[in-house]
Design a protein around this nucleic acid. Sequence first.
DNA 1: AACAGTAGGACTAATTTAGTCCAGCTAGAC
DNA 2: GTCTAGCTGGACTAAATTAGTCCTACTGTT
Lengths: 145, 145
Amino acid sequence: MIKVNKKIEYGVLALLYLNSKEDKAASVREMASNCGVPEALLSKVMQSIKNVGYVSAVYGNHGGYKLTKTLEEINLLGITLALDGPIQVADCLKPGNDTCPAKQACTIVDPMNVLNQKIIELFQTTSLQQLSAQKELSVKEVTLL
Amino acid sequence: MIKVNKKIEYGVLALLYLNSKEDKAASVREMASNCGVPEALLSKVMQSIKNVGYVSAVYGNHGGYKLTKTLEEINLLGITLALDGPIQVADCLKPGNDTCPAKQACTIVDPMNVLNQKIIELFQTTSLQQLSAQKELSVKEVTLL
DNA sequence: AACAGTAGGACTAATTTAGTCCAGCTAGAC
DNA sequence: GTCTAGCTGGACTAAATTAGTCCTACTGTT
Ligand code: FES
Ligand code: FES
């Protein structure tokens, strides 16, 4: 199944929660219990998100994480890169891929590259703002498939 | 990692190969060895692709599979549906998902639906023709060896 | 009847993803 | 200064998914 993993799901959930706190910091514990996700895992997720600069950490007592960007500035590509590494939509595309038996005559490396590029663009142009703005609409869209 | 699975990779490879055979049927054995993919697995893949009508099977001696559509008519959504079921880009979206602890307060079901829709559209508008249009590049690479 | 092929269920192996545990470090509150 | 709530991050285990195999039955051509 082509899907975004839990870490990304949790990351989005947490960032949205953080946004609702305005400028206040929220601890992982707080976020985890509010969002209903495993604390230890969210902890890792937040660390990675911190490393790409979407949030900053406040150490010590009453510390936690704070948003350092607006929802408009945060896009899915950044979150994905932080939590899941570079996007490679097909195994063909993997950098060190010397083991593929079909490699020599492979007709799909390039096609897959095209698809890969399209997905990267889609993720890049999908900001958190854009996602969270759609709430009313989506109920209709659901019935499409 | 957000990626298309091997079955889809193999399916695309096989359909492209089939296309190069014009109207002649190719057996799974032939396709597998030409594309360098596991025969038993490709057999399953072709069965599923047959079930959505992109190819027809010719039974008996000298049988195999034949394309019944043009590359323009075959899109990634169809292939994905055939080999991997409906696209659900996040676990939130799964039909029978009653177990998610965050469900009640979930702020991302709708956002994820929007993303899901976008991916479906991308897959639907990506025909095999469109993908393979980039081929000239790879032909060069192949002839290098 | 022999053969070369598809159909598909049941299974195992490999890989990836999800989640846990723990020991260390940081800074604010007292 | 020292307690304490909280971040950091490596190592690990468990669960789920994906990849791949095997085997038996069926189909149609020669
Ligand atoms: S390189 Fe392996 S399928 Fe393309
Ligand atoms: S329903 Fe579980 S995260 Fe949305």
